[in-house]
């Protein structure tokens, strides 16, 4: 008994060290910009850098646009598949998993070929066009996470019966989707949204090859030029990611609460 407990603790401690040591080291390093004293100077420099601000804001907007488009595509699709086309579920699932199988670099090369200036839809010709292409690319990239989350959420409620109950009360399907289905999978959508957010904020390949100034390429740029600032940036990115995870936990907890209660 005692022994196995000890072993378990040892494993936990080793694991924690494995994950925490680089983090602590990076953090410690990021504080050493000023000689002989710890300071947040590197953070100050990074955060006050207008390029950082614009890159981060840009990524933020992209993430939000991606989330909105993703929800608009995924929620009705998952609803329809669950309700009317359950046989299609494996097909849809396979399609949503494709972005995990096909490397981003291949997808983006495909995009560039398809939508270049001499193509039928020259999206890359204008900035706006490229931004649209980028956010749709991100929608595809985050599809596995968004679809999974929404699908799981829909499975946890009785979509069929709730829909029929609403129909018998006179509701048409936009109303049903908006006021019955959506509120009941809100936490699932939220987790999908956070995962999408994390994906978009850290994405490099698409942005770099489409030559858009997002956070990813900025991080790479700073990393190539500076010493302490990249460490600070890494910590900032890490905090953002963990904040997302934390929010996800909260949302997940809310979902469990609702489901447990629903019985």
């Amino acid at each position: 008994m005692k022994n196995s407990n000890l072993g378990a603790w040892l494993a936990v401690i080793l694991g924690a060290l494995y994950f925490l040591m680089p983090l602590v080291a990076t953090f410690e390093f990021s504080l050493r910009l000023k000689r002989d004293e710890y300071s947040f100077e590197a953070y100050r420099i990074v955060l006050s850098d207008p390029v950082f601000q614009s890159a981060f804001t840009y990524s933020l907007v992209l993430a939000i646009v991606t989330i909105v488009i993703g929800i608009l595509i995924v929620v009705p699709t998952a609803y329809w598949v669950q309700l009317r086309l359950p046989k299609l579920r494996p097909v849809v699932e396979f399609i949503t998993l494709l972005p995990l199988v096909i490397p981003a670099i291949i997808i983006v090369f495909g995009y560039i070929r398809m939508y270049n200036t001499s193509s039928f839809l020259p999206l890359t010709q204008t900035v706006l066009g490229t931004d649209i292409l980028l956010s749709f690319g991100y929608v595809a990239l985050s599809l596995p996470y968004m679809y999974r989350a929404v699908e799981t959420g829909m499975r946890s409620i009785d979509v069929g019966t709730l829909t029929e109950a609403a129909e018998s009360l006179g509701a048409k399907w936009p109303t049903i989707l908006l006021s019955v289905i959506l509120p009941n999978i809100r936490s699932a959508i939220l987790s999908g949204a956070f995962l999408t957010f994390a994906t978009v904020i850290g994405e490099f390949t698409f942005a770099s090859l489409l030559n858009r100034p997002t956070f990813g390429p900025y991080l790479q740029l700073i990393g190539a030029k500076r010493a302490y600032e990249p460490a600070a940036l890494a910590i900032i990115a890490f905090v953002i990611t963990w904040a997302c995870m934390g929010l996800l936990q909260v949302a997940g907890g809310a979902a469990r609460h609702a489901n447990g209660a629903k019985k």
Binding site: D158, T161, A166, P183, N184, R186, A258
Partner: peptide
């Protein structure tokens, strides 16, 4: 008006 076996009240 329809009443289902599985209650089917809107949980939200």
């Amino acid at each position: 008006g329809m009443v289902f076996q599985a209650y089917a009240l809107f949980p939200n």
